[in-house]
Design a protein around this nucleic acid. Structure first.
Length: 145
DNA sequence: GCCAACGTTGGC
DNA sequence: GCCAACGTTGGC
């Protein structure tokens, strides 16, 4: 299983809205960046992802999973752009802020810090575990600790 | 709201 | 294929 992080501006698409979509999940449309798209193409069903609020909040608020493999982005006819669906799995009990991530030496190589503008990014297993720990979530069961 | 970082576009 | 201009992202 691979791990990822999706950024969203909460006033455009928030974690609350994502959760409201339930098990069906929602298309992660609108990505117009090759690196972000390539990351989505590399995703497999059941891959886990952090849900990060950018612009406002600036924190990791939830965990989602890939519920549909990358396919044509329905908001464009341009065949270059495709995207996955994700569905909400669990809240992060204590949302992990960007500030906390930056202050944690174990996370200094996280894409969130090094590739600030990339909106769909890979997360390493040890980074995943560390952010879960900070957020008060068991990384495997996704139950609060 | 500003602006730095950086990805994309298009002229040459 | 270079690079300047431009647009967008996203932290502050």
């Amino acid at each position: 299983m691979q791990y990822w992080l999706f950024k969203s501006e909460p006033f455009k698409w928030s974690w609350e809205q994502q959760k409201a979509k339930g098990k069906v999940g929602e298309e992660w449309d609108g990505i117009r960046n090759y690196q972000a798209r390539n990351n989505m193409r590399a995703m497999e069903l059941g891959d886990r992802a952090f849900f990060y609020h950018s612009n406002e909040g600036l924190d990791v608020v939830g965990v989602a999973e890939v519920s549909k493999l990358s396919a044509q982005d329905t908001t464009t006819d341009d065949e270059r752009w495709d995207c996955v669906f994700i569905r909400a799995l669990a809240d992060v009990p204590n949302p992990v802020t960007l500030k906390e991530v930056k202050a944690n030496d174990a996370l200094k190589d996280m894409a969130l810090v090094t590739s600030m503008r990339l909106s769909v990014q890979p997360v390493k297993r040890d980074e995943w575990v560390e952010v879960c720990r900070m957020g008060g979530l068991d990384p495997d069961s996704l139950k609060p600790v």
